[in-house]
Amino acid sequence: MKANGLLSASQSALMAVVGRLMGIIDVPLRYLQRKTGQTGMAAFFLAPNMAIFTVFVLVPFVINFVYSLTGGSAIFLSERSFVGAEQYSEIFACGNYLDPNSCKQDVFWIAAGNTAAFVVLQVSLMIVAALITALILNREIIGRGFWRAVFFFPVLLSPVVTGLIWRWIFQRQGVLNGVMQGLGLEPHDWLTERNSAFFASIGVSIWAHVGFYTLILLAGLQAIPKDLYEAAQMDGTSRQRVFWRITLPLLMPNLIVVLVLALIKAVQIFDEAFVLTHGGPGTSTMYLVQYIYETGFASELRNPGLAAAASILMGAVLVVLTLVQMAASRRNEKKGAR
């Protein structure tokens, strides 16, 4: 556009063409609106998205559910026998749900327990780490841009690369043991000892994703009005009080988003943990998605029906988490509106 605000000849011509095109579209759209009303128009505009959702989410979900009602190792549904809820009863056949060894599908329950422990620990530690990192990166520190990039960089890495890098660090002859030996300390079998392997998988997962959540919290911190802090400063409010009374409440919407996203992501843990520990030692880092993968694809005699049933159960947990997120968001919106 020219400095004086007038359109050039070519820009005017372009606008005229666009105007004509809009005019052409306008006729059928007006007709459609007359026929369907406002609700119908909304559906019309949503249709492309709904079509994509149907093809890539709804239909696979239905197929998966149908698989969970069938038995055998064949891939094609037409070659599989209908077994009803047998796969679900197989999973729930337990003497005592708190003792996986009493269950027929003991590895499923071990994997479910591991996933629950992973979710609780990883999500809490992740939120604390992301909050601390965001608070630090929000301050006027030297090289702030550089540090923000450093924390975000792991998010860009492929999970397989992340898993491999940390495997080389943690393995018996890895970097960490090399450093420890250099310092005169005894090396440790990080990936063959149950607890250290479990915490290694949590640590690596936090390292890989903390940058993403930090970014969300950083955006929240920057949206808090500065005058609130200035007023608090003038009142001589302590830093801790400022944090608990101003920062944290105003950051709550972002924290809820982080909490729910981190929860959903943690329930789906697979790739980097699988590359890092292969689910070992024993089954101590075997999480639900790995169980589903191994049952459906990697074992000598595949059982796609059982894998599908396990994934439906996991999907149910994810639906509950999503509902919790929606409820929390709504509650938060109402609070904000008051």
């Binding site: 590895v107 393995q171 018996r172 079998d189 990936l191 063959t192 392997a197 520990t277 292969h278 689910g279 070992g280 030692p281 024993g282 089954t283 880092t285 075997m286 790995q290 191994e294 990697a298 074992s299 000598e300």
Partner: peptide, 12 residues
């Protein structure tokens, strides 16, 4: 060698 048998799960 523990690394071989212990540091994996399932049929890996």
């Amino acid at each position: 060698d523990k690394d071989v048998w212990v540091s994996a799960s399932g049929t890996t």
